[in-house]
Design a protein around this nucleic acid. Structure first.
Lengths: 133, 133
DNA sequence: TAAATAAGTTAGATTAATACTAATATTATA
DNA sequence: TATAATATTAGTATTAATCTAACTTATTTA
């Protein structure tokens, strides 16, 4: 797996989470969601594309299969850690924000093992599914 | 607390862990331990100094009180996570290496809460004390 | 102590990531 | 098609990380 940066992680997640609606994701939207100017987003997008995580088609941006897999793994790590944090008495929203700073650096297989050792939680504290599309 | 980078984290830890012997830590030693050339270490050291984490005295490098505190907290987070990893069946040495990639990004108070929720372990899997000088 | 050796520092360059503005190109839409 | 909206390029800046080469400051030792 390629290494990605925090910004690339944020961008990947924003793309995926903006793709849920009926509208295709566009540079302008990412720029607005991420609060950075279009040329700066483009720079990040170009790196994600070089890493094979996204593809562009006339302004429309989407994750590749590899991008989907990367996204899926980051989210699995993220939600597993959220459960751990939450069970330790840390506020779910604080946990979410803080975990986002390093979830992309945590090994997926390690998170699986941790998940198992804490009883394979099925949902994050916000009620989102862990591992299952 | 100041934010630090991975390299600054590594440097801080190397300084502290080289200070245990009778010899003062010097640039040349850090250069050797960290496998980077003296001017590169110096650059990192200068940033650590600006952040108030280390002090230099005629070639001798040492942590400030703030640096000691930062070190102490990183190590506490690190060892707590090592216990978590280890109890999940992850090899202690693998865990150590991997956790070093993000321990400095994990909030100390959160680690304390996690520690508490897993029974306040007293030692890391290598037998090093958690929290206590 | 003076010369030689070692260590530290400065200077100058490079690469990668992040961000910006301004200008240019492209694509939609009215 | 002309206009408006979007996207891209070009060019600049900053921060972090690294290097080599040159220069300075200690330290050692003959």
């Amino acid at each position: 797996m390629e290494n990605i940066t925090k910004k690339e992680r944020d961008c990947l997640i924003t793309i995926k989470e903006s793709s849920n609606g009926p509208f295709p994701v566009r540079l302008k939207d990412l720029s607005a969601s991420m609060n950075i100017k279009p040329p700066s987003v483009l720079e990040i997008l170009n790196r994600l594309q070089e890493k094979g995580l996204i593809k562009k088609d006339r302004g429309m941006i989407a994750l590749t299969d590899k991008g989907e897999e990367t996204y899926r793994r980051i989210v699995m790590v993220h939600r597993t850690l959220e459960v751990l944090y939450s069970r330790s008495g840390i506020d779910a929203n604080d946990a979410c924000r803080k975990i986002g700073n390093f979830d992309f650096l945590v090994d997926y297989d390690d998170a699986r093992k941790i998940s198992q050792s804490i009883g394979n939680p099925k949902e994050c504290p916000h009620g989102k599914k862990i591992e299952e599309e």
